[in-house]
Design a binder for these strands. Structure first.
Lengths: 217, 217
DNA sequence: TGCGTTAAGCTTACAACGTAAGTGCGATGG
DNA sequence: CCATCGCACTTACGTTGTAAGCTTAACGCA
């Protein structure tokens, strides 16, 4: 009787949540069935009572990330709404750096993902976009968002002004004059004081949002 | 003496090339050291005489994809040049669908990658872009490109007008009216005759290229 | 000609992975 | 009180990347 609540019951959500935390700490390959089970105080095979397998867990993880993105309010100005939701999405994707890498292998969107996409489309439609134009805008904005984060993650430097070790090696190995424009960019721009790649994002988003608009045709 | 050329000698390039072919056929997880060795008529451990390990092979594969992208000619109009190279890049990334998924985990660009980036920067600089503006443009264009391909690959349909099985299930399971805008988009746009997601790409690229330009400041 | 060095194959072995199969226990419902 | 069943457990298998060591063929030089 003293052990009535000896352990909180497992379920799919608890498994996926633990998997997200584990991936945040050790990266996506760190999410092994045994490690995940260990963190939940359970043996590996017990997880199969709640999820279909590792792949199912990865699907759930991606959906969890989408669930973290703040949905825009329906009433607001569409540009404002898209800007907010894009910032929130970018933050979520950087908080869980494994998410972008998983996206291209997941073919089954979860309900949070669907809900998110539906809401964004709703904002555009409410802003006066035709169905076709909303599709264009949606594709363009999200392509930019995902692609930007993808590049951000594979950058050889992490913060303003500091290259990491690998990049340092690379630059040092670069024979003089072979990649002149790359060298110019590195020296005169990226390594210049105060540069932050994060600000690059706003430039592109502003350009895109400025050029986009509901069609009058 | 009859066996002088009993087998063509192995080297890093042959290993990586075989890995690319294997990944094209079986996907990235299909590239196992044993399978790869088998295709080269060799045992798994022999590969380690030519590459540092599986990770090194993956690095090489990504660089191979960049090597396949046609470099723009230096003299041409920058918009034309960027458009051509973007089309070539998109084709290469679709020819090797595993490449985008690998990009975010590779931190060591190969020389083909560097050469490619350098040439693109060169085109922009020659077109009159300042260093800072070239960085903006480069980031924006490539983000769009990679993000677009990423989305394209995770789409639940493959060609115009046909959903694949998983997507069919999904649409059927969608409770009426829960994702109204998604449903509208599916019915009135995506599933409409003649729709091809590939054309979506040009819309975004044209918009971006139209809004970009060398700075006069 | 013969010998030492070296490059690049080979075999063996191991820990860690995902998961199929089957066992056992504790709570719940008739 | 007993049957059922959900859920965790143990065991086991095939596959993975790769460390360690062995073998052999080619080559430089005495």
């Amino acid at each position: 009787m003293a052990e009535r609540t000896r352990r909180t019951p497992l379920n799919r959500e608890r498994v996926v949540t633990a998997a997200v935390a584990l991936a945040d700490e050790k990266g996506e390959p760190g999410v092994t069935m045994r490690a995940l089970a260990g963190r939940l105080g359970v043996e590996a095979m017990s997880l199969y009572n709640h999820v279909a397998g590792r792949d199912d867990i990865l699907d759930g993880m991606v959906d969890t990330v989408f669930a973290e993105i703040e949905l825009p309010e329906a009433g607001a100005d569409w540009r404002e709404a898209i800007r907010d939701r894009t910032a929130s999405a970018r933050a979520a994707l950087k908080r869980h750096p494994w998410a972008v890498g998983l996206m291209d292998s997941r073919r089954r969107p979860g309900w949070a993902t669907l809900r998110h996409h539906d809401t964004v489309l709703g904002v555009l439609r409410a802003g006066g976009f035709s169905v076709a134009m909303a599709a264009h805008a949606f594709s363009l904005i999200d392509s930019y968002l995902y692609g930007y984060v993808l590049q951000e993650l594979s950058l050889p430097f992490s913060g303003p002004g500091d290259l990491d070790e690998a990049a340092g090696d690379l630059v040092r190995q670069m024979p003089e004059g072979v990649y002149p424009h790359l060298a110019e960019m590195a020296v005169r721009h990226v390594l210049a004081e105060g540069y932050d790649y994060g600000e690059e994002f706003d430039f592109g988003l502003t350009l895109i949002l400025g050029a986009l608009g509901p069609d009058e045709a």
